[in-house]
Design a protein around this nucleic acid. Structure first.
Lengths: 352, 352
DNA sequence: CTGAAAGCGCTAACAA
DNA sequence: TTGTTAGCGCTTTCAG
């Protein structure tokens, strides 16, 4: 490995001169700079980041801590972040937690010891106290999910509004028995979405608890099972709202497997607009999320924070709205199948 | 930041004792070790990787250089690798090249200067000479794609066989005019797949060049356009083979948009088994790839290499076979639409 | 404008 | 079993 010393020796100058020349220090003559950079290139010099980091400079690494990269949601985010950060001279590292707080802690430890410039995190439901402690010492932003203990820096979407829009679309189509399959309300996103679901239902309507299926995040199959449970109810729902990308995929798989006719027998609204949602059955009506833009905004802001050394603890929150994309998987509830309950009361129609 | 010295001071021992205790050195008494680890935890000590690296030890970072993480193909790989490496105590960093060799070079430079333990790479078509030079100095493995200049360490799938299987399936169903949409043959995978396509066609059959659409990798829309070109041919194909995940998605999107009836008007075989391929139209007949297992094998082997300090230049190649998954998107060519050419000759039926 | 020297946190050779 | 010391490559005072 060729060091600053080697260059210095070759040029018969001191190491510090070389160091300064490479750092484009104003006190070094142009002539010297030129010679130095020339020789450096010639000898194939690459700065030793480790040594640099020892001098207090943090690395150009930014940790991205997330549940699972296979989720199209997150891989889009990773891509956007990676682009932004790269432009800012940073490199993204990937840490998957599988929604396990201990794994999360482990990763944060690693990242800390690697002197990362900062961390962008999609936190687990209840981060470990040690994780919180460690994050306090680093620039960090929460993405999508948000946990109070991790500070006020957050980029996310309006989860409540998203599911509200999805659900009220169905309500407006005359649906009463609407099933919901989403993440546990332990997750901040989970509870926000559930709230949106409830808000959109006509006031005073009693929701059959069996219609609300809260599942652990992380697997498509869990979504499938929940769908199966809903469909095998004595009086199954006439419509289903999926409350996450993965549950959406679970719902679609199960409906396809069971051969349920959509939208004739069942209306469905998905979450997110992953590849394939458009071509599923009659086209999936779904909640479109500005994931890419959101992540880009987050990345840009993060770079700004670190580079310009802005106060890292100042609260900053960005909430992006979701938009309903209506395709073929939802339709007006046919009077026949929509067995009305007792006295049909007026629906409070609300626009999302 | 709490250092080894702080712990030493607190315990009134020397820094090296603490260092050794933490490294579980055999010469340190159990009692001391216990006290040290206790205090270390209490004070929230995290080893400074930078300092460690300065001592010659390479970091626990492994670079993963790939075209685009949004491709489900690669995000699966990333997930598998991440799992493996984590178990081995490594951390994965993400470097997206967008199939640009200069970006690739840039990333490899960065990774080198970050002292990564090694690099796992899905190389661009023609890596820059400097990239080659840099990689020579690092443990590295090629994944999926393979370029001769980057050495003999490769984990991939049998691309030729994969497309061969896809194509000969169609041939056996009586198709003659089979279109192929795949990556440029500049890419090693691209040319291997194209080869498989040609091999599967009945001998002596002249392929209309217009039926073979080679496109640049990286975008679904390019696949759509190619599909459009195929469909608007004077005598369009009766079947299409997609030669990559992204072109598959492009084909599906376009066919859906145009409302082409599959498999009645057109048979389709996809590449890879992404989420949604199962539920597209009548279910997509496709080539299933053992991506996850492949990546896991690669990760395991990589960890082994680095940890056990095995000779890094010893050639090692692992080729995984693909398997055809027959669903509803392919069917026997109806005599009517399958305008036979001159004298129908015997097909050489081959099993993939 | 340039040089000398100290020190970042850790490890390892050498001493005790 | 533990302590002392030197040095990894770089930045950064402090002196020229």
């Amino acid at each position: 490995m060729v060091t600053i010393k080697d260059i210095a020796a070759r040029l018969k100058v001191s190491p510090s001169t070389v160091g300064r020349a490479l750092a484009d220090d104003s006190r070094i003559s142009e002539a010297t700079k030129q010679r130095v950079t020339e020789v450096a290139n010639e000898m194939g010099y690459v700065a030793n980041l480790a040594a640099r980091m020892m001098r207090g400079v943090s690395s150009n690494l930014v940790g991205f801590v997330l549940p699972d990269i296979r989720n199209g949601f997150y891989s889009t985010v990773a891509h956007a972040l990676s682009k932004c950060l790269q432009r800012g001279g940073f490199q993204l590292t990937l840490s998957e937690t599988d929604d396990d707080r201990l794994v999360e802690l482990h990763h944060i430890r690693e990242l800390t010891s690697a002197n990362v410039a900062g961390i962008i995190i999609v936190p687990t439901a209840k981060p470990h106290p040690d994780s919180v402690k460690l994050l306090k010492m680093l620039p960090h932003i929460q993405l999508l999910r948000r946990h109070a203990s991790l500070g006020e820096q957050w980029f996310g979407i309006d989860d409540t509004q998203a599911i509200y829009a999805a659900t009220s679309h169905l309500v407006q189509l005359g649906h009463h028995r609407i099933g919901y399959i989403g993440a546990t309300d332990e997750l901040p996103t989970g509870s926000a979405r559930l709230k949106g679901f409830h808000q959109a239902l006509p006031r005073g309507e009693n929701v059959n608890p069996a219609l609300v299926q809260l599942v652990a995040p992380g697997s498509i199959d869990i979504g499938r099972e929940a769908t199966r449970r809903l469909l095998s109810l004595p009086t199954p729902p006439t419509a289903i709202v999926a409350g996450s990308v993965q549950t959406t995929q679970g719902v679609l798989e199960e409906l396809t497997a069971q051969g349920v006719r959509v939208p004739d027998d069942l209306s469905v609204v998905g979450f997110g607009d992953e590849i394939g949602f458009r071509w599923w059955g009659p086209g999936l009506t779904t909640v479109g999320l500005p994931v890419y833009d959101l992540a880009t905004a987050c990345g840009l802001w993060f770079v700004h924070q670190i580079k310009d050394n802005a106060v890292t603890s100042a609260p900053y929150t960005s909430i992006s709205p979701a938009t309903l994309i209506v395709r073929g998987s939802t339709k007006q509830l046919a009077p026949a199948s929509g067995r009305r309950i007792a006295s049909p009361r007026r629906r409070t129609v609300v626009s999302g």
